[in-house]
Computed example of a mutant assay.
Amino acid sequence: MALTNRYRSAVGAGTLAALILVLVFGSPWYADWAADNTNANTAGGWWLRLLAWPHWRFDSDDSLRSILLADLKAILVVVLTALFLYLLPGSQLARARGTLSQFFAGWSSYVFAGGFAALFTTLFLANPSLLGAFRAAGDGATYGLFVGWIIGLATLGARR
């Protein structure tokens, strides 16, 4: 029998959804497909390319530092999603499971996770700058804003 909402926690469900998003859409195969087969000047193409933002890779012609930074960003998105899902009080304080506060707590945790993951990985660049950190955090928050509703739906109705 599948797990029901009674046994599913909001933190676990949201973290699992974030892990699946990063593993599937952050994979080199999907990122290459999105870059080759979508048009960045259309809304659908832009969104399909945005899904590949926290990409990871294990085989590349790039330097080892840039490969590790991309992998670190993908890992941090998942870890920080779990942390923010645990810390955000919306789903904890809601009297009834399945309320909109639980949905928005899951969504906002992904926005924060994307922004902070990008901000933290910018610190490890060869020549980090404050402007680069702000731009990276904006890219991460944009990713969280347009993809985080999936995390919100995953946490909807789950227990604390």
Rank of each mutant, 00 (worst) to 15 (best):
L21M: 14
A17E: 02
D71L: 07
G14A: 07
F134P: 04
S9V: 00
L130H: 10
F146S: 07
T42P: 00
W107N: 08
I150L: 08
T15S: 02
A34E: 07
F124G: 15
A17H: 01
L125R: 15
V111M: 14
L3F: 03
G14N: 05
T155H: 03
F146N: 06
N37M: 13
N5Q: 02
A13K: 00
V78L: 05
P28N: 11
L51V: 08
N5W: 05
F146G: 04
T15H: 02
L64T: 06
L72D: 03
Y86M: 07
L72F: 04
F120I: 12
S101T: 11
L131N: 06
V78I: 09
F112G: 11
F124N: 12
R159P: 00
G140N: 15
L123N: 11
N5H: 05
T15I: 04
G12T: 00
G140P: 13
N127Q: 13
A35R: 14
P54G: 11
G45I: 12
D62A: 14
L93P: 01
L68V: 06
K73H: 14
G26I: 08
F116I: 12
G106F: 04
R8S: 02
A74N: 08
R57A: 13
D36I: 09
I20V: 13
L145F: 15
F134E: 07
L123R: 12
I150T: 01
F103Q: 01
R6V: 09
R97M: 05
G114S: 14
L123M: 14
S66T: 14
Y7M: 01
F146V: 06
D61M: 14
G148L: 04
S63I: 09
W46L: 07
R49P: 04
W56Y: 09
L130E: 10
F124L: 15
G140W: 13
S101V: 12
A70C: 13
F84K: 06
Y110H: 10
T15M: 02
T142Q: 13
G14T: 08
I67L: 14
A137G: 11
F103S: 01
W33I: 11
